[in-house]
Nucleic acid binder design. Structure first.
Lengths: 110, 110
DNA sequence: CTGAATCCACGTCGATACTG
DNA sequence: CAGTATCGACGTGGATTCAG
């Protein structure tokens, strides 16, 4: 989890970007918001253009930042689940605003 | 209340990210929203940690994407102004959500 | 199944110098 | 003042392999 001294960069938008500026983090959060809980392989299926390596990396960063909660079930084969933490759920309005804009305005430009 | 998944076509968040995923684009937009119009040197002053090269590049991309309007006044020395287009102004809720979260989070950890 | 580790091509970015 | 051009260091990300 980031400490306060790392967090306040003098611009509220930039403070937020620290947590979601990873190339795919917002999209990952979008899908987890939509499904509540997702396994690694389910995220892979929903983000086919993201390599396994990058997906794992972004998930690990989101977990380290306290945005995602990762649960590992020691069965064989291993099963992991990702869901948002309380902090992560507070990002819902941000992701929602992106989703709304993407839904309504993207056709305008391309 | 309208849910963000009602008009789900693929991934709307990713569509939005194509326009604002640049490392500093959201912060640039935040400052222009706040000030309505900003010159290049004013943006430089507000983003001292961004190199001139990167600032110019991000501004150029935002302009090419129809988010920003750039006006050049052929005086000496040259004077340029950046403001949001109509499309750019539609991104206000997204930037606002980021600013709100960043502000709330900063207050939370203090 | 869920990753971590390694290699390597590629892109990004800062610094500097230059132009109109 | 507002950029562009060039270069080199650095980071990113894909492919592959390995491990628990």
């Amino acid at each position: 989890m980031k400490e306060i001294y790392d967090c306040d960069l003098g611009c509220p938008v930039q403070n937020t970007l620290q947590f979601i500026s990873g190339k795919w983090k917002s999209v990952i959060l979008y899908h987890i918001f939509k499904n509540d809980v997702l396994r690694f392989s389910e995220l892979q299926a929903k983000l086919p253009y993201v390599s396994k390596r990058m997906l794992a990396k972004q998930l690990s960063e989101l977990e380290a930042d306290g945005i995602l909660d990762k649960r590992v079930y020691p069965v064989i084969p291993v099963k992991t689940e990702y869901r948002v933490t309380k902090l992560g759920s507070s990002l819902y309005p941000v992701i929602e605003a992106m989703a709304i804009w993407g839904t309504h305005y993207t056709q305008m430009v391309k």
